[in-house]
Design a protein around this nucleic acid. Structure first.
Length: 582
DNA sequence: GCCGTTTTCGGCCCGACTGTTTTCAGTCG
């Protein structure tokens, strides 16, 4: 089978997701919709491209969640770039209603009702309807719903325009692959907020060194998924990728690579500061290089970034720090020397198994951790309040810990396996498991999954209570936000940081790209106050263990140093730390 | 639509809670 669609697994999965959404809007059977969703997830999780698998004669129906129908539709999508059933339903249901459906508080039924009764087509018309007050008059809706829509609509509108860091990551991989055969490309990298590891990326800046820009641009135009070429000049080209996402290509000379990379990496605030420093030294910095004001035609630096920063008396600044926060302070050299990096991470203290909502057995997670070179992990399944995840009760968690005690000897010298729990902080402020149980754990991380609408004081008190509990070591995803999907609950971060400091408890940077919680500013505040940070993947599968890098992005943006992060400690040091925090 | 069989149909992770209703859609992972 040959094809020219070059559809990635993520793109194929997105087609099925869209089909599922549109079927849901049209009131289709819920289990059929779920089947499309789980099929999409299965495709997104395949280690190899569907196109390659099919070419090798692989039987897609052997994958869990993919049956004859999805296998056939996948085949057609790979050949044609689309699915006939999707094309058909797009004619019947406006696909922009998918955004309306994603507003917290709304679902398929309400979105469809808004469409049919009020003519709502998308987020803009939804907002207008709310502002006019006509939503509150609709049967099944009310003033509170209308108010909540208005509060949450912007976060969804933003999501439509920005990519999560992991999606941006995948897009850069596809672009790299697309250009790998293009001989005109001498060098290629991505700048902008993506390079600075921001949690979401508004557009992607691609920088290329080439002698023949037009050849590079021709190749760029062939990239699958381009909806529109917005502009094309001699050295610069902009395209819009499916949806509203923009990718900018800039072709530069080898000699000014560093200056261009620095210029396009930003941030704007960082660059303003850099250029004013240069000016005070009688220098001028542009994307073409560093120049003396007295001799503006000869670049004295800029072939690489190091030379540019050296010219203004600075060490090379890692992109994550270029936010005009720490990089111009006196302690920069000290911070750079100790700035945390991925290779400093020696363990992971938050992950789930198939005892609750993880997809792998405890043994599989342990083995995967060993393969990744981790020295220790904590198994932290959910407690019973998270019933949808089949959270563990006191007896079940004791059974899991007994099992861990049994297999510990086999892992001796390879992995320190900690008996942990992600214990829910209940609505009344108590913890979801008995004190007796929690006292037997090696590692307890407490978190909130319910009661998000409580008052700021109530939620703060819940967290403070958990911090004060003698068996708790850490608070996981302290703000509760889901990026582009759900805002953080209201709580007093300063009080939480203060309490964590007083009780010697950790606050987590959850590395899952949907969370990244604490965020960079919150994590910086905590670390500066002297709170120990822990960076965890919250893995629900083996593949999730590789999400650690996104947590590192947050920590580096926060300027956090190695010694401020608990899981940079060796297994021995961690055991000592836990001994002192009993 | 998928899956597994007690194999070609019947089930598909729960259940307490909110806002709105007086039966239900959506929220939580």
């Amino acid at each position: 089978m040959t094809s020219k669609t070059n559809l990635s697994n993520q793109q194929l999965a997105a087609l099925f997701e869209e089909l599922a959404d549109l079927l849901e809007l049209s009131g289709e059977n819920a289990f059929r919709i779920r089947a499309y969703r789980s099929g999409a997830a299965a495709i997104a999780g395949l280690p190899q491209r569907v196109e390659e698998l099919l070419a090798q004669g692989f039987d897609l129906t052997s994958v869990d969640g993919i049956g004859a129908t999805l296998a056939e539709k996948s085949k057609i999508a790979i050949q044609t770039g689309s699915i006939p059933a999707l094309e058909k339903i797009r004619q019947e249901v406006p696909t922009t209603l998918r955004d309306v459906m994603k507003v917290p508080g709304l679902g398929a039924k309400k979105a469809m009702k808004l469409h049919q009764e009020l003519g709502v087509m998308d987020l803009a018309s939804l907002k207008q309807a709310c502002l006019q007050g006509s939503v509150a008059d609709l049967k099944g809706f009310g003033p509170k719903t209308q108010q909540s829509i208005l509060q949450n609509i912007d976060i969804v509108a933003q999501a439509a325009e920005r990519l999560g860091i992991d999606d941006a990551d995948r897009l850069t991989q596809r672009l790299k692959g697309h250009f790998s055969q293009c001989k005109a490309v001498k060098r290629l990298d991505f700048a902008g907020s993506y390079r600075r590891s921001k949690e979401t990326v508004g557009d992607l800046d691609m920088l290329v060194v080439s002698q023949s820009p037009s050849e590079v641009m021709d190749r760029f135009a062939e990239f699958p998924g381009i909806a529109e070429v917005l502009a094309r000049g001699d050295t610069k080209m902009s395209v819009r990728i499916a949806g509203a996402f923009q990718v900018d290509l800039r072709v530069v000379e080898e000699s000014c690579w560093g200056a261009a990379l620095q210029y396009f990496t930003g941030s704007k605030e960082h660059n303003v500061h850099v250029r004013s420093l240069a000016k005070s030294l009688g220098l001028k910095i542009s994307e073409y290089g560093v120049f003396r004001e007295t001799e503006p035609s000869v670049a004295i630096a800029g072939k690489d970034e190091e030379s540019l920063y050296r010219a203004i008396g600075m060490p090379w600044v890692p992109p994550e720090l270029r936010e005009n926060r720490f990089e111009f302070q006196k302690d920069l050299e000290h911070r750079l020397e100790h700035l945390i990096q991925l290779s400093d991470i020696r363990g992971d203290l938050h992950m789930h198994t198939d005892s609750t909502d993880g997809s792998e057995t405890l043994d599989a997670m342990a083995n995967a951790a060993i393969e990744r070179g981790l020295e220790y992990i904590a198994i932290t399944d959910h407690s019973k309040r998270v019933s949808i995840a089949r959270g563990l009760n006191d007896q079940q968690v004791q059974e899991q810990w007994a099992y861990i005690d049994r297999i510990k000897p086999e892992l001796e010298g390879r992995l320190m396996l900690l008996k942990g729990i992600e214990c829910d902080i209940l609505e009344d402020g108590s913890l979801d498991l008995s004190d007796d149980s929690l006292a037997k754990a090696d590692w307890v991380t407490a978190s909130i999954h319910f009661g998000f609408k409580q008052s700021r004081q109530e939620i703060t008190d819940r967290i403070l209570g958990a911090i004060a509990h003698r068996s708790v070591h850490s608070i996981s995803h302290p703000s509760g936000r889901l990026i582009s999907r759900r805002p953080a609950y209201e709580f007093d971060l300063t009080a939480v940081i203060q309490a964590a400091k007083e009780h010697g408890k950790c606050l987590e940077i959850n590395a899952n790209p949907a969370r990244l919680d604490l965020n960079d500013l919150q994590a910086a505040a905590a670390a500066q106050a002297g709170v120990m940070i822990v960076i965890n993947t919250d893995a629900h599968s083996i593949g999730n263990l590789d999400l650690m890098k996104y947590g590192l992005g947050v920590a580096r943006r926060a300027g956090i140093m190695k010694h401020q992060v608990l899981n940079t400690k060796s297994a021995k040091q961690l055991a000592d730390w836990l001994g002192k925090h009993k």
